[in-house]
Amino acid sequence: MQALFWTVEEVAQRAKQFYENGIRQQVEYGDNIGKMIVIDAETGEYGIDKTGVESALMLKQKNPKARLFTMRIGYDVAVTFGGASMVRTVE
């Protein structure tokens, strides 16, 4: 499946599947809690850093057409505004 034609929801779903099916067990510990993880929804490759920016740039450098999904490690949402949650995707 070519990632270029995925909806935002499909990118989120695929990235969350990668996270739940293996990445979570590798990253949810100690100093990683609260950091941002950026996941390539096509390959499952990921990067972790404080804001997610460095990881997104690294993954985009490897694959400029990557569909990326960002989330906060150990939390259900990445950012909240006035009670509403927002999860960023980087294209």
Results as ranks from 00 to 15, higher is better:
residue 56 A to T: 14
residue 49 D to L: 11
residue 42 E to K: 12
residue 43 T to D: 06
residue 61 Q to V: 12
residue 26 Q to F: 06
residue 64 P to G: 14
residue 34 G to K: 08
residue 25 Q to T: 07
residue 37 I to L: 02
residue 58 M to G: 05
residue 61 Q to I: 11
residue 57 L to S: 10
residue 51 T to R: 13
residue 69 F to R: 00
residue 38 V to Y: 06
residue 34 G to A: 08
residue 45 E to A: 14
residue 42 E to I: 00
residue 56 A to E: 08
residue 48 I to T: 06
residue 33 I to S: 04
residue 46 Y to P: 06
residue 62 K to S: 13
residue 44 G to V: 15
residue 33 I to P: 05
residue 37 I to T: 01
residue 63 N to M: 11
residue 36 M to H: 02
residue 28 E to R: 03
residue 61 Q to M: 12
residue 52 G to K: 04
residue 51 T to F: 15
residue 40 D to P: 07
residue 29 Y to H: 02
residue 42 E to S: 10
residue 65 K to V: 14
residue 54 E to Q: 14
residue 43 T to W: 00
residue 65 K to T: 15
residue 56 A to M: 06
residue 44 G to C: 13
residue 31 D to T: 11
residue 56 A to K: 05
residue 31 D to W: 03
residue 35 K to Q: 10
residue 33 I to R: 04
residue 57 L to N: 13
residue 56 A to L: 04
residue 49 D to N: 12
residue 48 I to P: 04
residue 51 T to N: 12
residue 50 K to Q: 07
residue 60 K to F: 12
residue 65 K to Q: 14
residue 39 I to D: 01
residue 69 F to M: 05
residue 63 N to S: 14
residue 41 A to E: 01
residue 33 I to V: 10
residue 40 D to M: 12
residue 68 L to S: 05
residue 41 A to F: 01
residue 32 N to P: 03
residue 42 E to G: 03
residue 48 I to V: 09
residue 26 Q to Y: 05
residue 31 D to V: 06
residue 36 M to C: 14
residue 27 V to W: 06
residue 27 V to A: 09
residue 61 Q to Y: 07
residue 53 V to Y: 13
residue 33 I to H: 03
residue 37 I to K: 00
